[in-house]
Amino acid sequence: MAAGLALRTWQLWMASAMLAAAMVPGALRVFNEGTAAGNFAFAATLANAGILLLAILLAAFLASYQRRQGDLGTRAAAQLSAMIEATDRESAKAEERVHQYRMLHDTVLSTLSAIARGVDPSDPLVRQRCAADAEYLRSIISSAGLSNANRLQSELATVGHDQAALGLRVHQHVADLPASLPNDVVHAIAESSREALNNVLKHSGADQAWITAVGGDGSAEGGSDGSGKTSAGVTVTVTDRGRGFDPAAGASGMGLQQSIIGRMREVGGQAVVDSSPGHGTTVELQWPAS
């Protein structure tokens, strides 16, 4: 917007200057004739050029005034959208807290209450539930300082807890997640992870799995600069150490194509499934797609 105005002012200057320059030779010729009429014509041309110059100055002033107003407008709009964003973030945080309280109520609090009331804690079912609750707490507490109200972290913790209740121990490691991610992306990653864990439970024969979630494209800095700026993207991997499969032989019945690959593609991400017989399976979810 400001750039457009500047361009227009610049063009105006050029056009006016050329016009004024074009008048000069004519005016000089008339002056050289030395007649009274010539003198009059010269004065008139000079006056015209003067008026033109004044008009140019006025136009330039108006243009810069307009530009300044435009800048003010842009700044006000930016401030407004920043305020709206902050409010959105706040309400997302509040929503997240409500979600976590509900989860804590349904898990840790009710388990502890049941044990306090006299349920036998050595019962395998109670112990399994305790382990699941502990894993949930661990996953929402870990790296809490870095991404306190991060929705993705909490969604993944919930997914992990749901699986733990089914007998799959899910270790969750999270680092440097971006401060915010679009809701549909969070949803797609969480549901794809859930599907990947379902597969672990159904097909791998393993009783534990790992979820790691790292900001950026997931690459360790290694020998590079190590600046470690948290970038906007995220990479989540779901890994098991189970029996694996041969990807070339196809993996029908695992819901990989629709439930994971298709789902990630819909939100502009990607999913890569890597497996080999006897070597477990890794599903890598990345957003945005590289």
Binding site: H171, H173, A175, D176, A209, W210, T212, V214, G218, S219, A220, E221, G222, G223, G226, S227, G228, T237, T239, D240, R241, G244, S276, H279, G280, T282
Partner: peptide, 30 residues
């Protein structure tokens, strides 16, 4: 693999890759 301190030990790209895959929960064989 998620150490972002500026004075972290320098790792070769191969070391960083192995570290990252292993950190995701894969066995050393995988």
């Amino acid at each position: 693999s998620t150490d972002r301190r500026p004075d972290r030990p320098q790792l070769s790209p191969q070391e960083a890759l192995v570290l990252r895959i292993y950190a995701s929960g894969a066995t050393l064989q995988a």
